[in-house]
């Protein structure tokens, strides 16, 4: 009869804390940096995608963010957590690219205004079945579009707080803003989103 001891499952090893990995990278261990990339690549991609609005730009911002993190990690002084530092780099890289993109995309004053684009979508009030699924898809698309159209100051805060689920305090650290400023920008951003998404809410 087998002993019960043989059935005991050894506990999984605890993940190495970010700070430890950062110190290893600072000491020259590049494998530790690869572990940090694996740990945060999806999160950072989400931020860059939400801010940039398309895969190609998000991909470029993602690469730039990690390259900068690698180049400057030697100067990281542990005054914040690694992820807030990394998110800040990703946010700044994305916003910088957005500014450049907006400069390139000049719009003629004579170009007719697409009125439909400024109006909320008309969605039938159907609660069940395939229509509900379709409505959810439309809502997601409308939400992403509305977020992309937010002014820059509001967009970063809404993405980090409402879509990525950071706390007000974490957003304040990422953005180098006071918590009060985060709350203010968040509320203003939400009001703009509400106007654009009114038919869904």
């Amino acid at each position: 009869m087998p002993e019960h001891k043989q059935l005991a499952v050894s506990p999984l090893p605890l993940p190495v804390p970010d700070d430890v990995l950062v110190r290893r990278v600072q000491a020259g261990n590049t494998e530790a940096f690869e572990e940090l990339v694996r740990r945060y690549e999806r999160k950072v991609y989400n931020i860059t995608y939400r801010l940039m609005g398309n895969e190609q730009d998000a991909s470029e911002a993602l690469q730039d963010a990690f390259m900068r993190a690698f180049r400057f990690i030697g100067k990281f002084q542990f005054k914040s957590s690694f992820f807030t530092w990394l998110y800040r780099i990703a946010t700044n890289v994305s916003l910088s690219k957005l500014r450049k993109r907006e400069k390139v995309q000049t719009v003629s004053l004579d170009q007719p205004v697409n009125e439909a684009g400024d109006l909320p979508f008309e969605i039938p009030d159907i609660k069940y079945g395939p229509e509900k699924l379709m409505k959810q898809r439309e809502l997601r698309a409308a939400l992403q579009k509305a977020v992309e159209e937010l002014p820059e100051d509001y967009r970063s805060v809404v993405v980090l707080r409402d879509l990525e689920g950071l706390s007000n305090e974490e957003v304040s650290k990422v953005m180098h803003l006071s918590v009060a400023a985060v709350k203010s920008r968040l509320h203003r951003g939400r009001l703009v989103l509400r106007e654009k998404l009114v038919s869904y809410l």
């Binding site: 999806r42 991609y45 989400n46 995608y49 939400r50 809502l139 997601r140 939400l143 809404v158 409402d162 879509l163 689920g165 939400r190 009001l191 989103l193 509400r194 998404l197 869904y200 809410l201």
Partner: peptide, 14 residues
């Protein structure tokens, strides 16, 4: 506004 925040929280990870 409460619905908006709720919808945002349900938004799946890309």
């Amino acid at each position: 506004l409460r619905r908006l925040v709720h919808y945002c929280s349900l938004e799946p990870t890309c």
